[in-house]
Each structure stands twice: as structure tokens, then as C-alpha cells.
Design a protein around this nucleic acid. Structure first.
Lengths: 323, 323
DNA sequence: AATTGTAAGCGCTTACAATT
DNA sequence: AATTGTAAGCGCTTACAATT
């Protein structure tokens, strides 16, 4: 109906319930001082009219919103997508709601990220990938909590949470050794992001004779094409890939070379495809639930005390041995 | 700094620029009546203080926000994820920003979707999948524009945009015929969603001798397990799968049966994996850019006129013949 | 005619005083 | 002591009247 008034306000409810505007407000404010009978009448009137508190007005009043900027870098990274669900869920549990910003989208890039400020977000969660950390500083300068996932930084006032790449790399090394690997290789994108760097360094430290192969991408094709570089190195008999996606690309390329088709491979992330019946890729599973849980928890804690020292939370990973 | 005031307001800017509060407001309102020199002074002061309009306050005032509820059903569907980027982009171009709600998340389900209303969203975009349409009605009742993607409905006041499943299915049929297919089969989830139903019906109409195989899921494993049912039907020599994910699962299962390993297969969606070197799945590509563009455009149009008759936009699909 | 400031209002919350 | 209403304020926009 276009005849209906678009929004029901607290005044409408107050009128119907025969109470004051502020009584309505109190009835919807947990812990406020309001008689049970009054609350009942208000709730009844609200139900009848279909009233819901205008969160925009409430936010303006309280000087703090329920919005959390969820900054991601595109939606083509399978692992990062796996993170969005749990993050949204954990935020919802805290009464927060994500405002989605794609930092990879040039249109949104700088302006979009900065605009987030005009929404007076209660905090920002940045998933790995693009976002320029300089912008994070602008938020910190206004004491808006910033949590960064899978990327390290020593920005003051910024909390970080990331998977235990070092332990993961060591587990990968051990697993390859158990499979009799003598000449291991590591494949990762160059320039390396935080995760890739940690994984590579820890792997090369565990297996000092490891060969490092740099590829110039992080997608399937980069992994697929890595086979050429792999072949120039003699006797490689086991590979640790920085991500599952790279590993799966490499695996497909290897399958065309009879001599290499059963090369032991370890990935990282445990994206869905790694578990496919025809894939059965051994990998290090990132605990997305826990990454999301810790991220939101750190955000909440910093909302309550923006002076607390920066925290770095390392979340364990698990080796999923498949084949 | 915790000593800094958290937010700079228009009054702060007005004071520094030596103008009134409303002059500042005008300087930030496109098309408002303000002298060039005044605007300049205001902009300078704003830059100096790092002022940004408080969008919450503005929204409250105008009675309309920049928020658009982006309702999705989880983040495990590769195709649906492909849609989020372009949607976010198109919204950003219009000065709108998505509030993410996961309808698959039981915690958010009913309350979350309804809560969206308290954010006074300017509109809602529902991607295919879970969301109960009953909730859409609540929005329509308040003249909040609702656009539904890849799902048909005759809810009054609701616009829909979907891919041309019928034409896609016909193209799939033709392609299979060209490959010499005599006994075609269709595989899709049962109960079927809108897309699956349209694809199945159009396919069976084009190829009247087609066998329909129902599977009880829409993921890789459902496709993988479908091979058992396929084998009970004799002489199937070509399959159209409702989605790429099903097709890829089926393909992997087929590869273990020498007699079936080269069965012609057609999928739908063109998810990234379909294009992998080792996959090369023939499929019908959904035009995500255009789906997103049309969705946002319909949303905008209905914001401007909530009385316009419901529109159904059908977006062409393209056969990507691979192998 | 173009530009400006004043004042009211958007829908809420909350300190405070008044009432029970 | 518990509960209530009044009134001011959150940060904006905008009709209107006043000024140039």
C-alpha cells in the first residue's frame, strides 16, 4: 500500500499505548527503568503497529552504530569466501551487521573505504588481500577498532588474527618427509603476501634444501603453469604449495606428465575443492570458524577499551592427510 | 589518540569557516544554493578538520538511507559468490552500500531479515536460494523495493531478474544433438528450485525423450553420486546438468568408468572451475555483470516510483563450448 | 535573483525533576 | 524506591524569511 505511512515511529506507539515517547524508548532498551505493565502495553502496541526501533536514530543518539565495515578483496578467492559466512554470523551474534566493501573494486577502493567513516562504523574487519594499510591508520586515528585477518602489521591500535602458518609449514614438511621426499620444493606467488611469506620461510627453515619456485599469480592457472619451472629443477620429489588453488592447478598440469603424476603435494586452506572425491588433496585446514570468532571478539574488546595494547592471535591449523 | 574528539561535525566546520551550520550542509549537498566562495571556504575547513557528513544523520533527515540489504544464502555456492562482486560494485556506483545478511544462517534467518527493516534500508536484493518470500512481502507492504535474482515470483511490487534458462536449456539440447546424442538425460536437484525447474522443463521439451534424474543435493557430491542412477538407465549418451558443480562432480565419477568417461556433458553457470585447463566443461555462462546491473537498475527505478508495475528481466546466457 | 542564517524537524535517548 | 514525563540533545536538512 502506498497509502500506508512508511515508518511507524515511537510516537505512534506511545499514542496507542497511552504512554509517553520516552516510555516506549525504555521498553525497547534492555535494563531501562520501566514497569512490567507499561512494558507489556508498549510491546502490544508495537506489535499491533509493526513498530521497530529506527536504528539510524538510535545510533546517532548513542554516538555508536551497529555497523562493521567488512573489507574484502574480491570474491574470487575461494578461501576468503569461506570466511565471510562465519564472520557475518559472529557479527550477527553481537548485534552487529556487516557493511560490505570490496577493496579490489577500483570504484570503491579509496573513496569507498574512506566513506565507511561517514557511516560511523563501530569497527572494521579487513580480510587479507588488497586493502592499503594506510587507510587502516585513518580509522585508528579516530579510535575506530580495526582487526586484520591473515596479515601481520604493527600498526598501533590494530589487532590481528592469523592462522599458524609456521606450524602449518612444518607439518607440511614433516608429511612430505614421511612420504620419502628428499628434494622438496615450495611454490608461491611472488611478490608474496604475508601468509605466503610465512609459509615459505618456515618451510625452507624446516627443509633447508628446499627449492623455492616463484609464480606470478595466485590462481589456478598460476599453479598450472608452474609445472614448466618445476621441470627445470631436477629431481623434485614433493611440493608444498602456498594455497590449495595453486596446488590444484599444479596437480592438473602434473597429471599430463606420467613421470610426475604422483608427486606428493600439500596445499593450504582446505577449500571445498580440495576435498572432492577426485581431488583428495592433502592440505592444512584453516579454522575459519575460529578465525572469525577471534576477529569479532577482538573487535568487541577494542570497542570497550581502545587503549588496550595490540593483540596478535594465532589460530592453529590442522593437517588433513588425503593422498 | 583517545584525546581526539571522535567525530568532526558540521558545526566544527562552520565555526572554522566562519559560516552557518546550514551553509556547510549546503556545500555538501549537490545542487544546493551556495556561493562558490562559500563552498570553497567550507571545503577547505572540512579538509583541514577531516570532516565527513554523518550519513546516519543525513539518512534520518531525508527519511531514506543508502543501505541496501543484500540477502544471500551462504557463501558456499560458487556461482552466487560470483554475483556478489558485481552487485557490490553496481550499488557503489549509485552511492548505495550493501548490508550483508545471510539467510542460511539460522541465527540471522527470521530476526536478521526483519531487523533489516530497522536499518531503514532503501531496498533489498535477494539472491536465489533460501530467503522465504513471505518476508519479502513485509518489505513490499512498506514500499521498500525488493529485487529478486534468479527466482521467479508474482509478488506484487517485486521485480525479478533472471538468466534465460529456457534458451540455455535449448542451446544445451542443440549442442548435445550436434555431438550425436540420441538418449539425453537431465540431472538436477529435487526438490527443484526455480532455475533448475526452468532448465529441466525446457530441456525436456526440446528433447522429448530425455530422462530426468533427480538428485538430493546441489553440491559436488550430489553430482558425483548421480553416476549410480545414471547407470541404471541404459544407453544415456549425453547429459545436461542443472549446474556446473553437479556436472563437475558427475564428470569425476564418470572418469572412473571407462565406458562413460567421454560422455558429453553440459553444465550451467560457468563458474571458474569449469574453465580450468583440466576441466574444460561446456556450459552456459550466466552474465553476472548484467544480472547485477539489471538488479540494481530495477531497484533504483522502483525507489523512484513504487507504483510501477512489476518487471521481469530476462538476461541472455551464452553457450561456452569447450569439450 | 542569488545567497545566507534562523529555526524547526527527522526519530531516537537520557538526565533530571516530578510523581506515585 | 520505583516509575514516569518533560525537555534537551545527537548531527543533519530544508522551508522560510532576511539580506545582499
Amino acid at each position: 500500500m502506498s497509502t500506508e505511512k512508511k515508518w511507524v515511529t515511537a510516537s505512534d506507539v506511545a499514542r496507542l499505548a497511552g504512554v509517553s515517547r520516552s516510555a516506549v524508548s525504555r521498553a525497547f532498551t534492555p535494563g531501562a527503568s520501566v514497569a512490567p505493565e507499561t512494558r507489556r502495553r508498549v510491546e502490544e502496541a508495537a506489535r499491533e503497529l509493526g513498530y521497530q526501533v529506527n536504528i539510524l536514530a538510535r545510533s546517532m543518539n548513542k554516538g555508536r552504530s551497529n555497523f562493521v565495515g567488512l573489507v574484502t578483496a574480491g570474491f574470487s578467492n575461494a578461501f576468503r569466501n569461506q570466511l565471510i559466512g562465519p564472520l557475518t554470523h559472529q557479527l550477527a551474534r553481537q548485534g552487529l551487521i556487516p557493511l560490505l566493501v570490496n577493496a579490489e573494486d577500483s570504484y570503491q577502493q579509496a573513496p569507498g573505504l574512506r566513506d565507511l567513516m561517514s557511516y560511523h562504523v563501530a569497527g572494521i574487519i579487513m580480510t587479507s588481500g588488497a586493502p592499503p594499510l594506510s587507510l587502516a591508520q585513518e580509522y585508528v586515528a579516530r579510535s575506530i577498532p580495526v582487526v586484520i585477518i591473515n596479515r601481520d602489521t604493527d600498526l598501533p591500535g590494530t589487532d590481528v588474527v592469523y592462522s599458524d602458518n609456521v606450524d602449518g609449514a612444518r607439518q607440511a614438511a614433516r608429511w612430505l618427509q614421511q612420504r620419502g621426499c628428499q628434494r622438496p620444493a615450495f611454490i608461491g606467488e611472488q611478490p608474496a603476501n604475508f601468509s605466503t611469506r610465512q609459509r615459505r620461510d618456515a618451510f625452507c627453515q624446516a627443509l633447508t634444501n628446499a627449492t623455492c619456485i616463484d609464480v606470478n599469480g595466485s590462481d589456478y592457472h598460476a599453479g598450472f603453469n608452474a609445472v614448466a619451472q618445476l621441470q627445470t629443477c631436477t629431481d623434485i620429489d614433493g611440493v608444498f604449495c602456498a594455497t590449495d588453488t595453486l596446488a590444484l592447478g599444479l596437480r592438473d598440469a602434473l597429471s599430463q606428465h606420467p613421470s610426475l603424476s604422483s608427486l606428493p603435494l600439500v596445499g593450504f586452506d582446505d577449500i571445498p575443492e580440495a576435498g572432492y572425491a577426485a581431488r583428495q588433496l592433502t592440505t592444512l585446514r584453516q579454522d575459519v570458524e575460529r578465525l572469525a570468532g577471534e576477529a569479532v571478539s577482538l573487535l568487541i574488546q577494542r570497542m570497550e577499551d581502545d587503549q588496550r595494547p595490540p593483540v596478535k592471535k594465532v589460530v592453529p591449523v590442522q593437517l588433513i592427510a588425503r593422498r
